[in-house]
Nucleic acid binder design. Structure first.
Lengths: 153, 153
DNA sequence: TCTGATAGTCAGGGTTCCTGAACAACTATC
DNA sequence: GATAGTTGTTCAGGAACCCTGACTATCAGA
């Protein structure tokens, strides 16, 4: 009998696989964006653009949509404003609030990011096969409790 | 024509889906462990147990295996030692080194974690279907560049 | 024995997120 | 129209997680 069994959690579980895939994906996206000159944004900043609209969005709305504290979102917006990706304009209907809007550079970053993400997804789809990739996306949606199309809540 | 197109990165991409699934999974694992009395460990501490062996493992080896700096692993081990999950014993063959070994509580935590992870994976497999779950695991392995069985490098 | 590599720690920093507290402005109500 | 409560934002401080640089002690080979 072996007196020295391994102690670890056993084979690599789903959580580890998900995390590794996530970090690889996001790392690749930001590497490619950096090559295109967008080397001053960090992954956390993407949360700002994720829910930004052309006409401007309030800080609290961005925070709610990203499920982080308004103070945290405020810091991200401060960064992006300093870097020239977004601007704050006064909300004409509410003097407490500011509307956060993308600048031209911000719009350029979003265009570049969309292309990079789409290209990377296509590349991964070719790697594992279109069908399995589609199944992966659907399965993740289901696990995440997302409706196939979209979900606002 | 619409003068106000959305600015965000488009539909939710693979990276977001992966991250959301990861956080849900890990959150559920630690919730269940907390219910069983293991409420003083944080996710980062799992990296210690992941590569621990009964006879003891050096800090540097744990750090290499987890791909983090020795200083970071040292802090995790400090925590777990203070919490009674692991102990440090002098390496009889190398006075520079300490061997990190699980305590009985550490072994109990690993047993509990294995059960929780297995149960959660079974639950998710039932949710999306056994076949699709198996495909998910395989596809993630392939995307992660892992050989189906195991991989050390 | 000297030299370089290795094990571990101390000090300090960056990123990402949090809570608590404050203040201004809005809104509903009496 | 004064008051009370809510909302938008910011300031201050801290926790978790990881990093690099610098240092000491020890080992191992020339």
């Amino acid at each position: 009998m072996s007196s020295d069994p391994p102690v670890g959690y056993g084979r690599r579980h789903l959580g580890i696989k998900l995390r590794q895939a996530y970090e690889t994906f996001i790392g690749e996206v930001f590497d490619r964006l950096a090559e295109q000159g967008f080397d001053d944004m960090r992954p956390a900043h993407a949360q700002v653009f994720q829910n930004l609209r052309e006409e401007g969005v309030r800080l609290t709305e961005l925070a709610r949509a990203a499920a982080i504290a308004p103070q945290s979102m405020g810091a991200l917006v401060d960064d992006l404003e300093r870097l020239g990706y977004v601007e704050r304009v006064r909300d004409p209907h509410d003097r407490r609030a500011a509307l956060i809007r993308p600048t031209e550079r911000g719009r350029a970053e979003v265009r570049a990011a969309r292309k990079v993400i789409a290209a990377l997804e296509r590349q991964w789809a070719r790697t594992v096969g279109e069908e399995r990739f589609a199944t992966l996306m659907e399965t993740l949606d289901e696990l995440n409790g997302d409706a196939p199309a979209d979900r606002l809540l």
